[in-house]
Design a protein around this nucleic acid. Structure first.
Length: 832
RNA sequence: GCGGAAGUGGCGGAACUGGCAGACGCGCAGGACUUAGGAUCCUGUGGCCGAAAGGCCGUGGGGGUUCAACUCCCUCCUUCCGCACCA
């Protein structure tokens, strides 16, 4: 008998698949499409089971959908621009392209070795001009629409990356790549994308797809966008005629309780307010200190609220009261107007600040119901809604009503307006580094910023550049790149030397997969109309905000450009858990990496794939256990022995051609058919919707155990029964362990490969149990069990239950109060 | 503080709309086959009491609803993740 030689089997089938183009998918309007996508990887050096888990899940889904008859597109490509390549280049003295392409080759080799069913004809690599020219094209369309613009502003500068990072790329005040290095505030002129213009859509468009997304991702994005509705109110500057300071508030109803106005330390009005102050210089220095403090976001939690009075007053527009204007470290210049009205009784931060500096506190909202609040005994602010008090004509109104009326009055009297603000800010995409897409504009002394004409795209990234990490764009050092003629006036001009954030590249790549070779457009809208949106996207939670929000933004922009007819790029999103070793995520630096190719060498990739699916449900973290994988290895061994031991007689019996009469089936035959169809029912729903691959594997293990106990099959089973059961088993196994499944299929004498097979058809009749075990309870406790024929009537069930010899003693001398019957499952007799 | 997820044997985890808690696998124990086994097969494996039959307890703690609760409600505790002075 043949032995299970996974490496041999796997390499053979991988070759067959490649020769047949088994995973090539082409547009076919007659067939229903299914787009499965795993987040495209950044080709860094290390490759471990953590990566492979992501692709294994996607591959199981893709292969299952193919068996179900869908036209499945399942592409793979490379997010190949980016800093690590450039840093590696600096360290090793090789070109980023060389480093990147070597890594791509390595990952691709592993993907092929794991048998992932990608359509490699659609492979893309974002560092190739064929791809990034369309980044430039899209950028120019955004420029035309006013969605890309240039502005000077404070940005997050990572000293290690020597470049700017977007707000989304700053984690705990540090760069997402260097979590131990705080970003610095730097004022710099750079390119922004107006993502804020889509803030409302980014929130609202979740509604139809939300069910298919992990809750926490939706919650995180909502949180990040941070919509807040309130009012902008203008406070006149006391002692001036027309000067004023504006605040934003969500609680205009508490304005009678305002006892100060507080500005951010870098509020633009501050220098003017301090002009002429006796301690002007000292206070300006103090403001600078507070501002620096604000940048260290990491220790904000413990940061004490600090501030100082400017000596100037503002006038409450509602009652004319003069309020001192303060400066404080906890007011953020980038949010709202960079200034607030301090209402200590109604806001905990204001409360703490006013307590510390002995500013007055005035209660203006009383909770409706419950004891009234008194200033003297107040331990914390009351931030809830209630009833307005001490608020002039508005006293007695509910908070909601007061907000409505006071906002309306502020508008009518000309010192306020209702306003919605967002925490989300525009996306800064300029990077002062080399290995990225050149931004296709020219700076002309005469014409200003001039777009590179479409006909001149791509603006090629020069190959020969001296890359050093010194904080200036490396492209500046290439005269033949920088010095150009202005496309408009023809005079000498300078080319833009910043490159794009690589998140630009990955914001639309899933459209390019649909039409990867297009030389006239990023993609043909006719083709993306068929393939997109992505039906199932799979990737790590790390991109919950970053990539996933940018991609949603791009989708909406491209829709408005007339390129797409949908508003959301990913109908369903799945975030897989990490693979851990020793409790932490695998990483080269921690030395706890389980190499993908090592696993393929020692167990074969089918076992490795099966184990990653079996050891934990896919959304949970998975602790890699060397002993655990043995179980999957044994399972495949066992399955192999069963198929190999029976394929000869089965193939011989195939020509017999007799029909099988179910009526004449033995108990063993019926039991196996029943098991097969029951397994099919459960596994189909587990593959389709629940994604509990761990239970899929468990079900197949049970089926194998049952087959094994029916050995010798030749003696115990009619060949048609054995064949049906084995073939069902093979097809159900195929999405998870595709190579051994192909081998089985062939061993069983089936031709054309699993690619031409269809998912088995469920047979209700065969799945039906003839006998069931009914649990007998007395007062809810199990006291006995009963074998009965399926569908037995309630009356009869109760009768048999009460006469059961184990149940009867518990009923003895008791009065039966109630009888509960769940047909085919349980009888519960309640006695008193 | 706000938002999200989760607490089940020695371990990873099952239990679908309230109906047998612990499927499947790992590990462990015993046995079979064997020169040998780290191969394979069989049996057992939540805790306590008991020779056994059987009984009692048991899904983070406490309370509740129900004939019946891992599942629903209240409350508390713990862990993980995200955001964090957002006005």
């Amino acid at each position: 008998m043949k032995e299970y030689q996974p490496q041999e089997i796997e390499l053979r089938w991988q070759k067959v698949w490649e020769e047949q183009g088994a995973f090539h998918a082409d547009m076919d309007p007659a067939r229903q499409k299914y787009y499965v996508l795993e987040m495209l990887p950044y080709p860094s050096g290390t490759l471990h089971m953590g990566h492979m888990r992501n692709y294994t899940i996607g591959d199981a889904v893709a292969r299952f959908r193919r068996l179900r008859g869908y036209n499945v597109i399942h592409p793979m490509g490379w997010d190949s621009f980016g800093l690590p390549a450039e840093n590696a280049a600096i360290e090793r003295g090789i070109h980023p392209r060389e480093w990147t392409n070597a890594n791509i080759a390595e990952i691709k080799r592993a993907c092929i070795r794991f048998g992932f069913s990608y359509d490699w004809r659609r492979e893309i690599s974002s560092c190739e001009p064929e791809y990034y020219r369309w980044n430039q094209w899209i950028f120019l369309r955004m420029l035309e629409k006013g969605l890309a613009y240039r502005k000077r502003s404070l940005v997050n500068w990572c000293p290690k990356c020597q470049t700017v990072q977007a707000n989304e790329q700053v984690v705990n005040g540090c760069c997402w790549r260097h979590e131990d290095t705080p970003v610095e505030a730097k004022e710099i002129e750079q390119w922004f994308l107006r993502i804020t213009q889509y803030a409302d859509q980014l929130l609202d468009d979740f509604a139809p797809i939300e069910a298919g997304w992990p809750e926490r991702v939706v919650a995180m994005q909502r949180n990040w966008i941070g919509k807040s509705t309130g009012a902008r109110v203008r406070f006149a500057l006391a002692g001036t005629l027309h000067k004023s300071v504006e605040v934003f508030t969500t609680r205009i109803d508490t304005i009678y309780g305002a006892t100060a106005v507080i500005l951010a330390p870098d509020h633009p009005l501050l220098s003017e307010l301090l002009a002429g102050h006796a301690q002007q210089t000292a206070l300006e220095a103090e403001a600078r200190r507070l501002r620096q403090q604000g940048m260290r976001a990491a220790d904000l939690e413990t940061a004490e609220k600090e501030g100082f009075p400017t000596g100037r007053d503002a006038v409450n527009p509602f009652n004319g009261e003069r309020l001192p204007i303060w400066v404080a470290n906890f007011i953020l210049s980038g949010y709202g107007t960079g200034a607030v009205m301090a209402v200590p009784a109604g806001d905990q931060r204001d409360f703490e600040f006013c307590k510390k500096y002995n500013l007055p506190i005035r209660v203006v909202v009383q909770p409706s119901g419950g004891p009234p609040i008194a200033v003297e005994t107040m331990a914390e602010a009351f931030t809830g809604y209630g009833v307005s008090v001490n608020s002039g004509a508005y006293s007695g109104l509910t908070s909601e009503e007061a907000i409505r009326r006071m906002t309306a009055d502020a508008v009518a009297r000309g010192f306020g307006q209702s306003q919605t603000i967002f925490r989300l800010k525009d996306w800064g995409i300029s990077r002062q580094r080399y290995w990225g897409t050149p931004i296709p504009v020219v700076h002309c002394a005469k014409c200003g910023i001039v777009a590179v004409p479409d006909a001149d795209l791509p603006v090629l990234l020069p190959a020969q550049v001296a890359i050093t990490a010194r904080g200036r764009p490396p492209l500046e050092t290439v005269p033949e790149f920088v010095n150009v003629k202005c496309p408009k006036c023809g005079e000498a001009a300078r080319r833009e030397t910043d490159t794009m954030d690589t998140f630009f590249d990955s914001s639309w790549y899933f459209y390019r997969y649909a039409d990867p070779k297009n030389t006239r457009a990023p993609f043909d809208p006719q083709i993306t109309r068929y393939w997109n949106p992505v039906d199932q996207y799979i990737g790590g939670i790390t991109h919950a905000i970053l990539h996933l929000m940018y991609a949603r933004f791009f989708c909406k922009v491209m829709r408005d450009l007339g390129l797409l007819d949908h508003s959301e790029p990913f109908t369903r999103l799945f975030c897989q858990g990490m693979v851990l070793k020793g409790g932490t995520a695998m990483s080269k630096s921690k030395g706890n990496v389980v190499g993908a190719l090592d696993m393929a060498d020692s167990y074969g990739c089918d076992t490795a794939r099966l184990y990653t699916l079996f050891a934990a449900p896919p959304e949970k973290d998975l602790e890699w256990n060397e002993q655990g994988i043995e179980g999957c290895w044994r399972f495949l061994q066992k399955a192999f022995r069963i198929v190999a031991g029976n394929c000869d007689w089965l193939r011989g019996a195939a020509s017999a051609g007799t029909a099988f009469d179910l009526g004449a089936a033995t108990e063993k035959e019926k039991a196996l058919l029943r098991r097969a169809h029951q397994t099919l029912r459960r596994i189909t729903s587990d593959y389709e919707s629940r994604w509990h691959f761990n239970t899929c594997v468990a079900l197949l293990m049970e089926m194998t155990n049952e087959l094994q106990s029916a050995e010798p099959l030749e003696k115990n089973l009619h060949p048609l029964v054995a064949r049906q059961v084995l073939e069902m088993f093979v097809l159900m196994l195929a999405p998870m362990a595709p190579h051994i499944a192909e081998e089985f299929w062939e061993m069983l004498g089936r031709e054309g490969g699993i690619g031409s097979a269809a998912w088995p058809v469920f047979d209700q009749e065969l799945a039906r149990e003839e006998m069931v075990e009914v649990v007998l309870q007395v007062n809810g406790r199990v006291r006995g069990r009963l074998q009965v024929e399926t569908g037995l009537g309630e009356e009869e069930l109760v009768r048999r239950a009460m006469h059961d010899k184990k149940v009867a003693p518990w009923l003895d001398g008791k009065r039966v109060v109630k009888r509960i019957v769940v047909p085919d499952k349980l009888v519960n007799i309640v006695v008193a």
